[in-house]
Structure formats: C-alpha cells, structure tokens
Design a protein around this nucleic acid. Sequence first.
DNA 1: GCAAAAGTGTTTATGTTACACCCATGT
DNA 2: ACATGGGTGTAACATAAACACTTTTGC
Lengths: 230, 230
Amino acid sequence: MLVPFTYDYPRPALTVDCVVFGFDGDGLQVLLIRRGIEPHLGAWALPGGFVHMEETLDQAARRELEEETHIKDVFLEQLFTFGNPGRDPRGRVVSVAYYALVRPDQHTATGDTDASEAAWHPVEKLPALAFDHAEILCTALDRLRGKIRYQPIGFELLPKHFTLTQFQELYEAILGRRIDKRNFRKKLLAFDFLVPTDDFTAGAHRPARLYRFDRRRYDSLAHKGFLFEL
Amino acid sequence: MLVPFTYDYPRPALTVDCVVFGFDGDGLQVLLIRRGIEPHLGAWALPGGFVHMEETLDQAARRELEEETHIKDVFLEQLFTFGNPGRDPRGRVVSVAYYALVRPDQHTATGDTDASEAAWHPVEKLPALAFDHAEILCTALDRLRGKIRYQPIGFELLPKHFTLTQFQELYEAILGRRIDKRNFRKKLLAFDFLVPTDDFTAGAHRPARLYRFDRRRYDSLAHKGFLFEL
DNA sequence: GCAAAAGTGTTTATGTTACACCCATGT
DNA sequence: ACATGGGTGTAACATAAACACTTTTGC
C-alpha cells in the first residue's frame, strides 16, 4: 500500500562507504581508491557511492565494493553513519559507513603502479584521505580492535586454512602488542571450535599444522551462552 | 567551496528514531508515542522524524526527542541505520536510529490517560509497533545489554545520587539475572569511581548510603588503560 | 520486638600470567 | 650440523564465585 508522502522538503543525498581491511601476514592493510572525479580528484578515498532507491544499504555497500574494487563475497558489517553538514563540499551528503574483512586470496592485485585505481595501504602509514574518510577509518579501526576480542571475526582475514602462528600474528598486528605463544594457543584450542586439518605448511622450517574455523560448532557453543574472549 | 552536484537521482528520505530507555526501580521501560498521522495512525511508535538539511544527525535526534516527548539533555548515542526498501509504506525512508538513557527525574509525566501522546512501556510487555520499530527496539536492547557491561552508562538511568542496591537492581533488570550482593559491591567499589555522599535514603527501613558517579575520576582511570567490566 | 532492607569477609574454585626447552624441517 | 620457526607444561598469582549473619530503622 502506498500512502501519499506529506514530506517533500529537500533531502540529503545518501551514500555508503567501505573500510576494507586486509592482512598479509605482516601488518593490517586498508584498501583505498584514487578518486577519478571532483571533488578531491586524485586523492585517496574509501570505496563507496550513492545508494540506489531499490536496494538495501548492505546491498549498496556490496555493489559499490565490487564496482570499485572487484571484491565480493566478504564479511561486511555496518559501522556508523556520518552525516555532519559540511562533510561533502557538494552539499548535504549522509554516508552509511561499513567495514569489510577480506581474506588474502580475495585480495585484488594492486600492482602498485600509478595507473592502478585501488591499492592496499598499511594502517600505520596512511596517506591523506578525501572528505571525512580519515575519521571513518579511525572509527572502523576502533571497532575492529574492540570486536575482534569477543567475536570470531579474525578468521575472515586469514585463509580458510591457517596456522596458529598466523592467527596469533593477526591478533598482535590488530591489537598492537605481543602475546605469549603458549597461553594464546592453550586458550584458543580450549574453545574447541578450531579443528586441526591433516595439512601442514611447506617451507624452510618445521611444517606447521593448518587449522580451520568450525563456524557451526562456534554457533552452537555461542548459543549455549558461552563467551569467546581473547 | 561548493562543487556542482553531478548526482541528481531520486534520494531516499532520511529520518531519525529514538529508543528511549528509563528505569523506575522496577523494570526497564521504553518511551513510545502514539502516532497522530498516517501511516500507522494511532499505533505506538518510537519518537522520531525527518532530518533537516542544516543539522547534524545527533541534533536531529535531540530535536525530535524534545519536540515529541519534551525530553532533553540526556545520554544519546547512535545505534544503527535501518534502510530496507519497504520499511515505510510511503516510499524509501532510511532511518538513523538512536538510543537514549534518561534519569527518573527527567521522565515525562505519562498520566496513562488515553489522551497522552507519550507513555512508558515495560520492555517485557510491549505493544505492537509501527514500521520496523520493533526490530529497532530489539537492536537497542541488545546494544544496551552489551554496552552496560563494559561502559559506565548505567548511571544515566539512575538519579544523580543512588544507592548500591538501586544500581544492582538496574543491572539485574537489564541483564535479566540475579547478582550476588556482596560480590557486586566489592567489585564496584574497588573500581574507585563511586564516591559516597553524606546522604542516606529515608523510609521504612535501615537507611542506605547514597553514592554518586565521579566521571572525572572514571575518565582518568579509563585513560590509564583500566577496564571497567561487570 | 518484629519486619524489612542495608551492610559486611572468608574460603574455594577458576582463570591468567610468566616462563624455557626440545622438535622437525630445508639448506 | 645449523638455523629457523613449531610445538609443548607447570607453578605462582590474581580474579571470581559461593555463601550467612549482624545492623539499623519505622512501625
């Protein structure tokens, strides 16, 4: 049923912006694009764009992410909505920000050439960003640091099969501090939602066992009122 | 600097909605208003309304809250943005939801008469709500339950001066379980940001000491990397 | 003096921290 | 054989949980 709309005042434009996190075994990275249009032409910015009338906000975020970075099928979650007048010189633009976590094998090839449109940047060494995107990125980082401690989202930044050392290095990179190896493993394995596979890493040294995250098991544990916390 | 706008496609309408929590010593309550216009005329709904072009989202939420419920100067925090097409029969309306915590002395007189526009409802016994407001309310409740455990926001639901028993009853009401009195007090006072006043409750039984929350002290402790958790 | 809520410590169990050595592999 | 990262247990310490009685007031 369509009811006539009694409100026909000017409306803000509505966009979505995505903070895309990646982890390459070294440090936490963020995917930025170079703007191809004014305003802020040539500046680094978060991927994002305008919300279409017939799509959900989540759909808009996923669509823009794929259009601008060719990344799809990733963990994506709404972060916060930024709507200060003046955040966009074109006029009133309200942006629903999202953050995404992508596995290494889902990373786009960046090439690191000047011609590339999207490129990974270490969070420790970010360029100046367009609009209020630096603020959005900070908010996303805070959220990630907070959330990773009590929700099993770290797995979204690792390959499907990973070593416990990789997992620990991820936590060290995000939380920004060293963690004791034995205590970390003890606690992690005690949760009982990491299952060892029969595969091992190859390489120069002793092979490390590969584990995978058993989401089904986690969900059933979480449902029984168990608390994950690292 | 104003840059010409290259995007002139249709825009969603943008609203704010507020989930207003109150605590009266018995149970957790939510403030609802009866809709005076279509759609959902006469139904219970969250206070809220359209965002103006020159105000921030926070300002819009505070303005609507005061216009519709005469409540102001309260704790208010952005919750989540709801934007599914179809959530409003009038067309595409995206709503930035907020939640507010109000102290008993800031409560509006509800009167509980049929003529009243706004009324408190216990969260355990809510009426049917307009739009997707039931979903918004659930999201707010989840957030409150989560956040109250590691942020000192409970004080926003109590008078400036309160007894430890009141504080405990608040936690029991929100978390939905009984808490051991001695352990609760021991832990709470050990944090050292509750300061005893010289006042006591009067009444039929042994008077209880009144405490107040020392925000300055909390902030300085929190800044030194201390963690509040109950 | 009795009913009702306020206030208070100790013991036990559980979880967290600190810490050092042997193992398996490639070169 | 050596360099490198993988893998493992225990003891000290700190935090959380369980638990019951005395105090103060109004009536």
